[in-house]
Amino acid sequence: MTVIGMLHYRADPRKVFKSYVFAATAKSEGVGFFYFTPGKVNIQEKRIKGKVLKNGEWVDMDMPFPDVIYNAGSPMTEKADEIHDHLSKHIPFTSHSIGDKISVYQRLKKGKKFAQYLIPTNVINNNAEFFEYTSRYSRVILKPTSGHKGMGVLFVEKIRNRYLLIDQDRNLELDRKEIDVFLSRQFSNQEYLIQPYIECKTKKGNAYDFRLHVQKNGRGEWVNSAVYVKIADSGSMITNLNSGGHTMYLDLFLKNQFGEYYFNVKRYLQRFSIALARHMDQLYDESLDELGIDVGLDSNQKIWIYEVNWRPGVAPAFNLEVDIPRNTIQYAIFLAKKQKSDTKIKI
């Protein structure tokens, strides 16, 4: 029987909600499953002190190395990083990092095939670069290079000699001196990316974008797990669901926005996500397993790629908790079987 190990940095699986879902899904798929942290790995004996879900409770069990590892969390210490590296050399991991926002942008740009869908993006380090950029684009978005969940994103619109600034909590109008002081403070603590603002708004004027969630299934093929819309509150530019945005049923949203053409837009998004995922697989040395692709549609219904994430979060609605863990578990089984098959061929 295939055994999957879920590797995470938190010691207590009860604090990792998805651990229950993945353990239950693994059981329904007829495979073994246990949870563990790097500190519980004995490299010399190839044993792990893991936790197995039994009758709704996590029970300590001494386990041999699993056939495949669902690496759900990144190592937090140097020692954990060493253990992570050792395991990855001997056991297939489901997930592999695609890098930060700017490295993904540069890789896609170099790959050319999807370069036309990229928003021009630059790393910005000082006020002079900001003012030069806003002389070309009157409306821009600033994103922390290491940001996530919409935290720290700034929208700035230049209106003659004044600047309208909107972030998660504020809506300010600043003059040149005031924004100069504001930006100096921001750039001293964080490196940012800057992009021209692509207007993607509902008929009521709310900013929105789409999350295209794609995964590999039990055959190692890319499939659409979900497409959902993220809508900013009135007066905000932040669509992220963890930072004030909200969502609604996709078909209802598309019908409201695109009328009789809603299904064409839906298929356009789904096909685009699969095509992009396949392309990105070709750009990396390690095979990818899951992507969260954030895109917008401009007034001409052209897709623009805002960013691509690995280990994407899941919308808290619409039964997505069923399909996503099933694809993850089935792909893990696929990797384990492939590893055994490749080993037999080498022997």
Rank of each mutant, 00 (worst) to 15 (best):
311 R>L: 07
307 E>P: 09
243 S>T: 11
333 I>R: 05
159 I>M: 04
148 H>A: 07
42 N>F: 06
70 Y>H: 11
208 Y>I: 05
205 G>E: 00
102 I>P: 00
264 N>G: 02
190 Q>V: 15
190 Q>N: 09
71 N>P: 04
283 L>N: 05
309 N>P: 13
62 D>E: 14
235 G>D: 08
148 H>W: 06
260 E>A: 06
112 K>F: 10
164 L>I: 09
51 K>A: 10
77 T>S: 12
140 V>K: 10
278 R>W: 04
22 F>G: 02
13 P>F: 11
277 A>Y: 10
304 W>S: 14
210 F>S: 13
65 F>T: 06
227 V>Y: 08
170 R>S: 06
247 T>C: 08
196 P>W: 06
3 V>L: 07
32 G>T: 09
314 V>N: 08
69 I>P: 02
198 I>E: 10
300 N>K: 13
1 M>D: 12
257 Q>G: 14
174 L>W: 07
116 Q>M: 12
109 K>T: 02
198 I>R: 05
120 P>I: 05
290 E>W: 01
326 R>C: 01
214 V>F: 04
91 I>L: 04
125 N>I: 09
127 N>E: 03
50 G>D: 05
283 L>E: 14
182 F>P: 12
95 S>F: 12
62 D>H: 09
335 L>M: 07
62 D>N: 11
41 V>G: 07
144 P>H: 07
239 T>Q: 03
261 Y>T: 01
267 R>D: 11
69 I>H: 10
345 I>S: 06
239 T>F: 05
197 Y>V: 00
17 F>G: 11
255 K>F: 02
314 V>Y: 03
169 D>F: 11
282 Q>E: 15
245 G>H: 06
185 R>C: 06
199 E>W: 04
37 T>N: 02
216 K>V: 15
112 K>W: 05
261 Y>G: 09
88 S>L: 15
249 Y>H: 14
16 V>Y: 10
172 L>R: 05
286 E>S: 15
14 R>F: 02
100 D>H: 01
311 R>W: 15
216 K>T: 11
289 D>G: 13
45 E>A: 02
96 H>M: 08
192 Y>F: 13
179 I>G: 02
337 K>C: 12
146 S>G: 08
253 F>C: 04
88 S>V: 13
260 E>Q: 02
258 F>I: 00
21 V>A: 08
176 R>W: 06
59 V>R: 08
332 A>G: 06
21 V>W: 06
167 D>A: 02
76 M>V: 15
19 S>W: 05
261 Y>F: 00
315 A>Y: 04
227 V>H: 07
70 Y>I: 12
311 R>P: 00
74 S>F: 14
92 P>K: 04
112 K>S: 15
122 N>D: 14
111 G>W: 00
149 K>V: 01
59 V>W: 09
310 W>F: 13
81 D>R: 15
59 V>K: 08
196 P>S: 05
93 F>W: 03
159 I>R: 12
37 T>H: 01
282 Q>H: 14
50 G>E: 00
